[in-house]
Simulated assay, not measured.
Amino acid sequence: MYPFIRYATTIAHAALQVKKGHTLQLSDVSEITLRCRLTDIDNFLEMNNGRVLTLYDLGRTDFAVRTGLGMQLLKQRWGLVVAGSTIQYRKRIRAFQKVTLKTQIVGFDERWIYIEQSMWVKGKPCSSALLRTGVTEGGKVVATERVLAALGQADLNMPPEKWVQDWIDGDKAHRWPPMD
C-alpha cells in the first residue's frame, strides 16, 4: 500500500521548512530522514526493493515543495511523471534503521529533468537511482523551458552530466519487448 500518511507528513514538513526560509535552489541537494518501518520490509527483514522506489517519491516531494515546484504544480494544474529509471542496490537497510534520503537534479534537457536519488545508513550508501522525470499538463510533458520560467529560473542551464548522458544514449538503444 502507498504510504499516504508519510507522503502527507513529508509535504507538511517541507512546507514548514519553506515557512522557516529553508528553501532549496534547483541545484541544491534535498535531504530527508526516515526510519525503515515494519511495513517497509520483506521476508528477509530488509527494506523491500519496491518500497525503496516508493520512498524515493517522498524525497522528490520534499525537493519539489522546497524548490517552489510544488506551488507551481498546484497553480498551473501540472502533474509529475517518471518516464524511466535505473537503480543499484549496494547495502541492506534493516528494520528500524535511520535512513538519509538525498535528492538532486543532475541535468535536464528540453523535455526531461534527470534526478539522482540515494539512500544512506550511517554515512554509507545503500542504493542509488537515476530517474527521467517530467512535468505534465493534460497528459503531455511540459517543455523544461516553460517549467524553469514558471520557477523564475529561465536562465538556468544544467545539461546532463556525462554519466547521465551515457544513460540517456544507452536508453535510446533499449529494445522494447516484441509485439505479438
Rank of each mutant, 00 (worst) to 15 (best):
M1P: 14
M1A: 07
Y2D: 05
Y7A: 12
Y7N: 09
A8P: 13
A8M: 07
T9D: 13
T10Q: 05
A12V: 02
H13C: 11
H13R: 15
A14F: 10
A15T: 12
V18I: 14
K19L: 15
K19S: 07
K20Q: 15
K20S: 14
G21Y: 05
Q25D: 08
S27P: 04
V29F: 07
S30C: 14
E31A: 08
E31P: 04
I32L: 10
R35A: 06
R37V: 08
L38A: 09
T39K: 10
T39S: 15
D40L: 10
D40S: 12
D40Y: 06
I41H: 02
I41D: 00
N43Y: 12
E46P: 05
M47C: 09
R51N: 13
V52G: 01
V52S: 04
Y56M: 15
Y56N: 09
D57K: 01
L58H: 11
L58V: 09
R60W: 03
R60Y: 05
D62F: 09
D62C: 11
D62Q: 14
F63D: 05
A64P: 00
V65F: 00
V65E: 08
R66D: 04
R66N: 03
R66E: 01
G68A: 11
L69H: 08
G70F: 13
M71W: 09
Q72S: 03
Q72F: 06
Q72Y: 02
K75W: 07
K75F: 00
Q76T: 00
Q76K: 02
Q76H: 03
R77P: 01
R77E: 03
G79M: 02
G79H: 02
V81E: 05
V82G: 01
S85R: 08
S85W: 06
S85G: 06
I87H: 11
Q88A: 14
Y89C: 00
Y89R: 05
R90P: 08
I93G: 04
R94F: 09
R94M: 08
A95D: 08
A95I: 10
F96C: 07
F96W: 09
K98A: 04
K98V: 11
V99C: 07
V99W: 05
T100Q: 08
Q104M: 11
I105M: 12
V106P: 10
F108L: 01
F108G: 10
D109N: 11
I113N: 03
Y114T: 14
Y114R: 07
Y114M: 05
W120T: 07
W120C: 13
W120I: 15
V121Y: 07
G123C: 02
K124G: 01
K124F: 07
S127K: 13
S127Q: 07
S128Q: 15
S128Y: 08
S128K: 15
A129M: 04
L131N: 04
R132Y: 00
V135L: 07
G138R: 04
K140S: 15
V141N: 12
V142H: 06
V142N: 13
V142P: 08
T144W: 06
R146C: 11
R146Y: 08
A149T: 06
A150L: 04
Q153K: 05
L156I: 04
L156H: 13
L156D: 06
M158S: 03
M158G: 00
P159Q: 08
P160M: 06
P160Y: 12
E161N: 08
K162T: 11
K162A: 12
V164T: 03
Q165M: 14
Q165K: 14
W167H: 07
D169Q: 09
D169N: 13
D171E: 11
A173H: 12
P177S: 06
P177Q: 04
P178L: 06
